[in-house]
């Protein structure tokens, strides 16, 4: 038997009158009451006026970011779309003759990038999987809209909300590296 029977300590007559429990309850409640009414020790936050300080590392709404030159960082690799557990992310790929990427040697960027904020569970998988540091869970926690359509954020909106994040700048470095190799024999032909 894994059940262990614990003996209940016998109560004194005084305890059995419920009086100590009642007095104890009275003491605790009275203390809190006085604290709130006379000292103003209230834990309530007056929400729309008072705002919570979002801690670092908070996982709010995922937004797309731009690099230091204002170029879209996302290269439409669709890993976030693949990894997203509630399938909130939907990417429209550019196609071979689609739009030109903001950064020339990055070759592509999404034609459309939609996050359905109603579906999003703020798990952060997209940020974790992103090889381009292009999507980050930011500090927005209160996202509202008047209908379902308005809760689907498109690329333009996500980029606007996301702001700038420079990161490792691998495409810029690559471009500079390639430009430095001007005597490349194939080009010299």
């Amino acid at each position: 038997m894994s059940t262990k029977v614990v003996d209940r300590p016998p109560l004194t007559f005084y305890e059995r009158t419920y009086l100590p429990a009642i007095l104890g309850g009275l003491k605790v409640t009275a203390k809190h009451f006085a604290d709130t009414v006379f000292k103003g020790n209230s834990v309530t936050m007056q929400y729309p006026e008072e705002r919570w300080v979002v801690p670092e590392g908070y996982r709010g709404a995922p937004y797309l970011v731009k690099d230091q030159d204002g170029a879209t960082k996302c290269v439409s690799c669709q890993l976030c779309e693949f990894v997203c557990p509630p399938k909130a992310i939907r990417i429209t790929t550019p196609g071979a003759d689609g739009l030109t990427a903001d950064r020339k040697n990055a070759e592509k960027m999404p034609k459309e990038f939609e996050i359905n904020m109603l579906r999003c569970i703020f798990c952060g998988m997209c940020q974790e999987v992103c090889p381009e540091e292009a999507i980050f869970l930011q500090k927005d926690y209160s996202i509202t809209g008047e209908n379902r359509e308005s809760m689907i954020f498109n690329k333009e909106k996500l980029l606007k909300l996301g702001g700038t994040h420079a990161g490792v700048q691998k495409w810029k470095n690559k471009l500079e590296e390639a430009q430095a190799q001007e005597t490349f024999p194939v080009d010299a032909q």
Partner: peptide, 12 residues
């Protein structure tokens, strides 16, 4: 392939 270029990731 130009036809399939940047169209869809193969794992989908």
């Amino acid at each position: 392939s130009k036809d399939f270029r940047f169209k869809m990731r193969v794992w989908f």
